[in-house]
């Protein structure tokens, strides 16, 4: 397997606070990679550096062998990295379909082609029936899927998903797990996800990274990581103890 994304010794400080502390990991093409850690561990900050929102203070990020750290968010997206926001940001006054069409227009100039692609994506995400509704009147689970649909419509090679399952009920979580697995298998999209819902992580991820106070404390296959003493005490202790 070849490395699609290579994060090397990346760090970010906010004034005094070290939000991300020399994090390194590699995401292979075609896999699902999870980043977990308690609130404030630096997961979103790490995403923002990959997506071009923040410039790292140290280290480098390479996507398909080329450095992308320091590029603008739109440039990163044009290279094939699409992201969702932890707090979803739909285009509220536009219809569900138009939201997704905007994503589809990234690599398409023809409106009809973009519309066709958007409808395909909406069908994949079970949002097809709601395509004429304005985004502001969607429920949270639907908004989360819209957020994903829009990112997916840009035909990314790598999807960055920031807690797409947070706030979902267990049945909706299962549905999302199912959708993500389908995207990964059928479209071959590599997925890097931040997740709190351990059940989902265990079901999806081939590899995972645990962050604690910005620093990586464990990395590997999920079944190995959850047995790690440091991980259990710092993070899983309270939540995952049976």
């Amino acid at each position: 397997m070849t490395a699609l994304l290579q994060v090397s010794g990346v760090g970010k400080r906010f004034r005094g606070l070290v939000a991300v502390d020399r994090v390194s990991f590699t995401v292979a093409a075609g896999e699902i990679f999870a980043v977990i850690g308690p609130n404030g561990a630096g997961k979103t900050t790490l995403f923002n550096m990959i997506a071009g929102v923040l410039k790292p203070n140290q280290g480098s990020i390479a996507f398909r062998g080329e450095r992308i750290d320091g590029l603008t968010p739109d440039a990163v997206c044009r290279r094939g990295v699409a992201r969702t926001f932890q707090i979803v940001r739909p285009f509220p006054a536009l219809t569900v379909e138009d939201n997704v069409v905007i994503g589809a227009l990234l690599h398409r100039t023809d409106m009809e082609a973009a519309r066709r692609h958007a409808r395909d994506v909406l069908a994949t995400l079970d949002l097809h029936d709601k395509r004429d509704i304005v985004a502001s009147s969607l429920t949270l689970p639907d908004r989360k899927r819209l957020e994903l649909a829009r990112a997916l419509a840009t035909d990314p090679k790598l999807l960055l998903l920031d807690e797409v399952m947070a706030g979902l009920r267990p049945t909706e979580t299962d549905r999302m797990v199912d959708i993500l697995r389908r995207i990964n298998r059928e479209m071959g999209t590599t997925i890097l996800l931040i997740e709190h819902v351990m059940r989902a992580v265990m079901a999806l991820a081939g590899h995972m990274l645990v962050l604690h106070h910005g620093a990586p404390i464990a990395q590997g296959k999920p079944e190995e990581v959850v047995r790690d003493a440091k991980v259990i005490s710092s993070y899983l202790g309270a939540e995952a103890a049976p």
Partner: peptide, 26 residues
Amino acid sequence: ARSRLGHQWMAIREDETAARALGIDV
């Protein structure tokens, strides 16, 4: 309003950060 540019404009109007994240050169 029906064009690619029009959709980019509306995206920017609605949410500039999200527009940028979708690859739009704002």
